[in-house]
Amino acid sequence: MASESAAVASHNAHAHPGYGEVRHHFESYEQQKDASTIGMWVFLLTEIMFFGGMFMAYFVYRQWYPTAFASASLKTNLWLGAFNTTVLICSSLTMAMAVHSASLGKRLLLVGFLIATLVLGGAFLGVKAYEYHDKWEHHEIPGEHFECEGCADAGHTPLFFALYFGMTGLHASHMIIGFGILVVLIWQAYKGKFSAKWYTPIELFGLYWHFVDVVWIFLFPLLYLIDRSGQGGLH
């Protein structure tokens, strides 16, 4: 006989003090937490492929038109880019501190670090918006009125700017989504929804935020730093 009528005690009660809610279809808190964490990592895998398509396009075109990419890259504002990189790295630090505070169950500290992260994220987006505006003023947006003054191989530079806007735009949209989620998390943290035993949303959001940060760490050199040591130099 291949079967036996055995059963595992079903956790219908689902009362786990301090663990937040264990949803009805999970057997245990651990199973729920594991599932969420794996889910987040799988999602980040998806995100890598999402950005990957664009990186692919970038590498192909840069390989073909190195001159155009090098000279168009000089049009980016190195100092704003570097400032934003610093801002994002700091925001990753505050986010990590937020997760740490959550694990210690320190509510106000958690709220504080989340707000710091929010402010830094906002600063990044503000600077980015200023940069876009600047590009607009200088007609550096691909299209009819595009011009790239003093660029070498100007005929191919629209590709660089297309990728610049595509990649930073996609990145910024991730920042905006993160910004929105942060607002909700701050509210929830302030209301005391999280505890030292249960802070999965904070932890998972941290993963997301670091991921977005890492993407920028790649974007910055690829878009801002081509040929800075060459004839263009710093400016």
Binding site: Y65, T67, A68, A152, D153, A154, G155, H156
Partner: peptide, 14 residues
């Protein structure tokens, strides 16, 4: 012809 600056021959200028 279309993108003369893309590949400049050695010894010549843009």
């Amino acid at each position: 012809v279309l993108y003369p600056q893309s590949k400049i021959v050695a010894g010549f200028d843009d």
